[in-house]
Every structure is written in structure tokens, then in C-alpha cells.
Design a protein around this nucleic acid. Sequence first.
DNA 1: CGTGTAAGGAATTCTGACACG
DNA 2: CGTGTAAGGAATTCTGACACG
Lengths: 107, 107
Amino acid sequence: MTDNPSYKERKVITIGVVSELTGLTERQIRYYEERKLIFPERSPKGNRKYSFGDVEQLLDIANKREEGVQTHEIRQDMLKQQRKEERKNRKELLRGEINARFGIQKD
Amino acid sequence: MTDNPSYKERKVITIGVVSELTGLTERQIRYYEERKLIFPERSPKGNRKYSFGDVEQLLDIANKREEGVQTHEIRQDMLKQQRKEERKNRKELLRGEINARFGIQKD
DNA sequence: CGTGTAAGGAATTCTGACACG
DNA sequence: CGTGTAAGGAATTCTGACACG
């Protein structure tokens, strides 16, 4: 409540800083975007902006690449993981709705 | 434990983004640094880098300035607040040391 | 005091392409 | 496939200074 807790997802970091933070070259970072592994926002004039979450994602990608995993495979894994999360979210949403109607009343 | 919780203090944001985030001009942001109200880091080639914490600090400064508070007064208040925190920290540190010697043993 | 602005230069970022493998 | 690099241009940032008030 004291302030916005979205520091991790706020896209505010330029590519040069991301490069320093991850040890990846700008070329690599842009390429992973081309392969749809990362999704920076753009400033009004077109400069890429990343979040801390993106930086972590890039660190994971870097590890997998070192293990020889191809970007295509990394992408497949990401999509799988994403679907898994969505199922979990739907389940929790449903649980909340049931509780709202039949659960303990708080008011 | 999942990852570094220092997103708030990590200095990674360039002045242009800080300007967008705060609504302040770059001129103003640099001036507040000159008046020692804000302390960005510098990249190897001299570019300023701010944290989310700095952004919040600048938002506070902007509010005070709108109320007509001068930078000098803002700085005085900051220093007072800082000394207050330091006293609190020393007290807690002392408390911890006493506990370590005479408190409940955990091993 | 606090902020705007023009000035000149250096560093940043962008895109599209060629290279290698 | 994944990455390096040279190319040219546009946008960013920096400092020191003059202006106004």
C-alpha cells in the first residue's frame, strides 16, 4: 500500500543497461526478441525498454543457450509453461467464485 | 529467495525515462542532484542512472516544490529524517547484540 | 533561487544487410 | 542458426553558460 509493487515488471531499462546486467550483447538481446523470447516495450521514439523481469528471463535464456538449447526449443518451453500457468489461474479463479457464493460470508 | 529483491534500489534508469516517470524536466532532475537531493550513479561513460527509489524521492521533491518549499529546506528535512533512521538502526543493532549473548539460544 | 534554452560534442540506439558456418 | 560487424542516421545525454527574476 505504501507504493506500487510493480518494480519487477515496469519496463524502464534501456538495452545498454540490460546488456551490462546480463552480459549479453545488444545484438543477442535483439535477436531473442526477433525469436519471440522477450517482449520489450518501446519509447515514443522507438527505443526498447525492459523490466527486471525481462532481465531475469534473459539470464535464463543465456543459461539455456550455453547448454546448447536452441531458441526455438526455448520458445516451446516458454509456451508450455505459460499454458500451465493459465490453467492454474483459471482453477483459482473458479475456486474464488465458488467461495464468493457458498463460502464463509464476511459481511 | 527466488531472486534479488533490490529492484527498488538498483540504479538502472536513464534520465529520460525518469523524466517521463516523474513529469520533471531533465534540467530539474539535474538541478536537484546539484542541490544534493538525489544521488544517481554513473555509467562508465558518465550517464546518470536512477533507481525506482530515486524516482519516488523525486516525486516527493516535486510535491514539496509545488508547495513552495525550497530545495535547501527539503535537504534539511532529508538530513533530519536520515539521522532519525540511523538512531533507530543503532538501537536495533544493540538490541540484536544483547539478544545474541543473553537471549534464547537457538543452537 | 529555480528553471529554460541554445551549443557542441560524445555516446546510444535503431534498422537492414553482409558474413560465417 | 546465432552472432559479429560496418554503415548511416536519429535520438539521448552531458557540461558550461547566459537569461530571467
